[in-house]
Amino acid sequence: MKIAFYGSSLLSSYWNGAATYYRGILRNLALHGHAIRFYEPDAFDRQKHRDIDPPEWAQVTVYPATEEGLRGVLAEAGDADVVVKANGVGVFDAELLDGIVAEAAPHALRIFWDVDAAATLDEMRADPSHPVRRRLADLDLVLTYGGGPPVIRAYEAFGAARCVPIYNALDPTTHFPVPPDPRFACDLAFLGNRLPDREARVEEFFLKAAAALPDRAFLIGGNGWESKAMPANVRHRGHVYTAEHNAFNCTPRAVLNVARDSMAHIGFSPATRVFEAAGAAACLITDQWEGIEMFLTPDVEVLVARDGQDVADHLAGLTAERAAAIGAAARARVLAEHSYDLRAAQVDALLREHAARQAVPA
């Protein structure tokens, strides 16, 4: 099928944590025979911080972040069998959603793909005129990259015809064990941009642990942290490109995952970092959230912390041997159950199911 996908960016992970997810899903969908066209705006300096060149498995159009540029790419939606609007493009989000509904061919499957479902649902509850809430009746399918039963129930209560979580996963061709890199040497590393609904949890789970262990070395990567006051044993690395993620995950004794407020509240929402770290056989410490057992087994494949003191306690007692065993077990689990190959097969089945239903009346 021809898939037209309107998202934030396939080429750059700069202020765009969904890039790894898009790449993993779409690359594997292409292996199922689908023709992928990805449309991303030239915005937020993402094109100056590309991680990859346009891949052979997708045709990428970078359009000016203008009304004229928007009209140009929406005009191409009519040629597709599947038209997807992802949330969080950052410019013309409402217009893009209206546009795919208006421009899609009559037979086309119209999808809203929400990579931040918990936050979107909070916005919809607060605003009856929210663009997504207003357009749900015109969409055939909502896909999310997390949220489990709570998100499914919430979206369907708002009027979605169907909501299906397509969870984050591992692409073993991009995330895998590599030799340590001294640039990332530390006892505990955290990677994530500074965002309003994440900062307080980073303070609790990362900075509080660092303050409790002044003799240990901590490293934080991501945009926006340069102005944040931190303990003396914390180093700030800045933006970490996708090509550096394996070394970032493989080098420290352990790496930390901290969910954003909304995702921690609703559960069932493992970040891409969880699978990237597991794929690199890193020892992962994560904040506690409902549903983690669906993805990794606590104390065997991941260490779970209720607060910063738990993080400090885990790290204080973590030997190199146990860290390696946890990382190896996590890698084996995600390779077997949580690969993008499996996620793409799930999406492919949904697309073919819709196509079969469309063919029945004819």
Results as ranks from 00 to 15, higher is better:
S9H: 08
Y14K: 02
G17T: 11
L29A: 04
H32D: 06
H34I: 12
F38Q: 00
E40G: 05
R46G: 01
Q47S: 04
A58V: 06
Y63I: 12
R71S: 14
G72W: 01
G72S: 15
V82P: 00
V83E: 06
V84K: 01
V91G: 05
D93Q: 09
G99R: 01
V101K: 05
E103M: 13
A104R: 02
P106C: 07
F112W: 14
V115M: 10
D122C: 07
D127L: 00
P128F: 05
S129E: 15
S129N: 12
P131Q: 01
L136F: 13
A137V: 09
D140I: 07
L141F: 11
I152W: 04
Y155V: 13
A157Q: 10
F158C: 05
V164S: 05
P165T: 06
Y167C: 07
T174L: 12
F176N: 04
F176Y: 14
P180H: 03
F184I: 04
L191A: 08
G192S: 04
G192C: 09
P196V: 11
R198E: 14
L207C: 06
A209D: 14
A217W: 02
A217P: 00
G221L: 02
M230Q: 13
M230W: 03
N233E: 15
G238T: 05
T242W: 01
A247P: 08
T251R: 05
T251M: 12
A254F: 09
S262W: 08
A271F: 03
A278W: 01
D287K: 03
D287F: 03
D299N: 14
E301R: 08
A305M: 10
Q309M: 09
D313T: 08
A324D: 11
A324Y: 02
I326P: 00
G327Q: 11
A336R: 14
Y340E: 06
D341L: 13
R343M: 15
D348F: 01
A349M: 10
E353F: 10
E353H: 10
A355W: 05
R357L: 12
A359S: 10
V360M: 11
